[in-house]
């Protein structure tokens, strides 16, 4: 791959909370079209790492180059870059006081200056791709967990982002709803969307991931193709982890 294809380049990323080091120097490259799956035990720092990528957590050290710009530089207007980095949360975080349609059009109309008509047309089209076009006028409280998360995904997509960050998107779902969300994510990956996914779904990592990363104690302990990662793990902590989750 040429350097032109690098979307995100993380160098020596550090984060501490009140003196407690959570991330201890992480380097990573995410190329266009990559589906990077990040796994690890709880408390290992994998969610913190993901949340640092769009600066929801402010890193205490290191740099993050996103499309060539160091977004950790305080002079950079992070809001503009966040428009290009969609995020999907464990708790969905839909706006409860707005209809599904308004959830999807708020960003595009206010930030991308799309007309209401265009934004709604696009929103309906996106809802159709996840089979929820008939719920456009519902409020989030009227949806199931799986439906909420699918809406949350298309809310991020409506901003036409260059990368999607998933923070344990299926962890708050009832087991029978995990599949419908993973299906949507898989389809996105097949369409070439660049994704960084923190998850416990090893099946998804193996099937959809282009690269799997094991974070342990704030550092990357192993990084490999799914095949090698699952069939031939090197790091003893990873071997231990895999034996517990698979």
């Amino acid at each position: 791959m040429t350097t032109n294809d690098v979307l995100i380049k993380v160098d020596g990323l550090e984060k501490s909370f009140n003196g407690v080091e959570v991330l201890k120097g992480i380097d990573m490259e995410i190329d266009k079209g990559d589906v990077v799956v990040i796994v690890g035990a709880s408390g290992s720092g994998k969610s913190t790492f993901l949340r640092c990528l769009n600066l929801l957590e402010e890193p205490t050290g290191g740099t993050i180059l996103f499309e060539g710009t160091d977004i950790t530089d305080p002079k950079v207007n992070i809001n503009l870059h966040r428009q290009k980095m969609g995020m999907v949360f464990q708790q969905f975080n839909l706006f409860p006081h707005m209809t599904v349609l308004r959830n999807l059009t708020l960003g595009p109309t206010k930030l991308l200056k799309q007309s209401k008509k265009d934004a709604e047309k696009n929103a309906i089209r996106l809802l159709e791709t996840v089979g929820l076009a008939d719920r456009a006028d519902s409020y989030p409280s009227q949806l199931s967990g799986g439906q909420k998360q699918r809406v949350a995904i298309v809310r991020a997509l409506a901003m036409n982002p260059d990368v999607l960050l998933f923070d344990e998107p299926t962890s708050a779902l009832d087991p029978e709803m995990v599949g419908e969300v993973l299906e949507v994510m898989k389809k996105l990956a097949e369409d070439g969307m660049t994704m960084a996914v923190v998850t416990h779904e090893m099946g998804f990592a193996r099937e959809v991931g282009t690269k799997v990363v094991f974070i342990d104690d704030g550092k990357i302990a192993e990084e490999n193709t799914p095949d090698e990662f699952f069939n031939n793990p090197q790091n003893p902590r990873l071997k231990d982890f895999l034996s517990k989750v698979i």
């Binding site: 809001n79 975080n93 809310r155 991020a156």
Partner: peptide, 23 residues
């Protein structure tokens, strides 16, 4: 209001002020 509402709005690219007003 849940912290997640701030985060969802900020992650879409809204600044603090717009997040307050709209969300």
């Amino acid at each position: 209001i849940d912290k997640g509402q701030f985060e969802a709005s900020r992650s879409l690219g809204f600044d603090y002020k717009s997040t307050m007003i709209f969300v």
